[in-house]
């Protein structure tokens, strides 16, 4: 009896005191903890991002700038070389992103099944993700050499004479995109594996019991339930594809001519040539392109997910 009567009293006294101490007298969560991150992030990321909006409207030499209105943007969408860079960026992003979704899903299904040497296969698919992009780019430049390269050598054994993968304007962009998929499909696979493993086993067993074939189980159970993974793969690879620079620069430098230029390589070329205003305009175009594609898409995909 005594214990029960004492306890509530203690609690009622202690609780307001503690909450008062927590909220007014003493806060263990200090906003100062944001300060170092906030300074570095603002000075080196936010300030340049906002400054780019102004400097893209100028002719700029880093020391002085002259306001020229929308001239840089007009140039960007009139000069054929620069327009090509813009369309190539879209093609590159869609091709790599689409291939990574399809191949990543197929590989993940394969690598979650009862297959021999599963650990080896997972490792070997994933490892290129960690390798230097420049190293991969230079290696494949050699492998894709039109006369002496290994790829065309292998094709000629079968009787096909392969094209000049990186020297033929029709193929250059797609060849680089293929290497991008080779390097990046491991990450997509990994995300899909995480998604598939988290599907409760009972669902798949239930589908089996109901007489579903492997294909139907895949189509009706695995595909819809790995939707969050699909959304992640699409968004990540679109962001990566639109911003892609390293691989293209290592393999073709935008060539032959400007047939495999993307916005990011145009930015670098204009920067090298000293057209800082134009280069920054390219940055703004890239910024707008990425947000205009990724934000609505992620909103749309995530909304659909909630509806289900």
């Amino acid at each position: 009896m005594t214990t029960t009567s004492v306890k509530p009293q203690e609690r009622s006294k202690a609780a307001p005191a503690a909450s008062a101490a927590g909220s007014k007298v003493y806060r263990p969560y200090s906003n100062w903890f944001f300060l170092p991150s906030a300074i570095i992030y603002s000075v080196l990321f936010l300030v340049p991002t906002f400054a780019s909006l102004y400097f893209s409207l100028t002719r700029w030499s880093l020391f002085d700038s002259k306001f020229v209105g929308l001239d840089n943007f007009k140039l960007f969408f009139q000069e054929p070389a620069l327009v090509k860079g813009f369309t190539n960026t879209l093609i590159y992003a869609v091709v790599t992103s689409g291939s990574k979704v399809v191949l990543g899903l197929l590989l993940a299904v394969l690598l979650t099944s009862q297959i021999v040497a599963r650990g080896y296969l997972r490792s070997v698919v994933f490892f290129p993700v960690l390798v230097s992009t420049i190293g991969v780019g230079l290696t494949f430049t050699v492998l894709m050499n039109p006369e002496r390269g290994l790829i065309n050598g292998a094709l000629s054994v079968v009787g096909i004479s392969g094209p000049g993968w990186l020297t033929d304007p029709k193929w250059a962009l797609l060849s680089v995109a293929a290497v991008d998929v080779w390097k990046g499909v491991g990450l997509a696979t990994l995300i899909y594996i995480a998604g598939i493993v988290s599907i409760p086993r009972e669902y798949i067993e239930a589908a089996r019991v109901d007489g579903a074939s492997s294909w139907e189980t895949f189509r009706r159970v695995v595909l819809p339930l790995s939707r969050p993974a699909t959304v992640t793969v699409i968004i990540l690879s679109l962001i990566g594809g639109l911003r892609s620079f390293d691989l293209i620069w290592a393999m073709t430098q935008g060539g032959p001519g400007f047939t495999s230029d993307v916005i990011a390589s145009v930015i670098y070329k204009q920067y090298q040539a000293g057209f800082y205003g134009l280069s920054t305009a390219g940055n703004v175009v890239l910024f707008i392109t990425v947000t205009a594609i990724v934000l609505p898409l992620s909103w749309f995909l995530n909304r659909k997910e909630v509806d289900m």
């Binding site: 400097f55 700029w60 962001i239 930015i267 920067y271 800082y276 940055n283 990425v290 947000t291």
Partner: peptide, 13 residues
């Protein structure tokens, strides 16, 4: 995560 960094303005800063 989304916005590509603006190159030349960063150099300027």
């Amino acid at each position: 995560l989304i916005i590509p960094p603006a190159v030349v303005p960063t150099i300027w800063v």
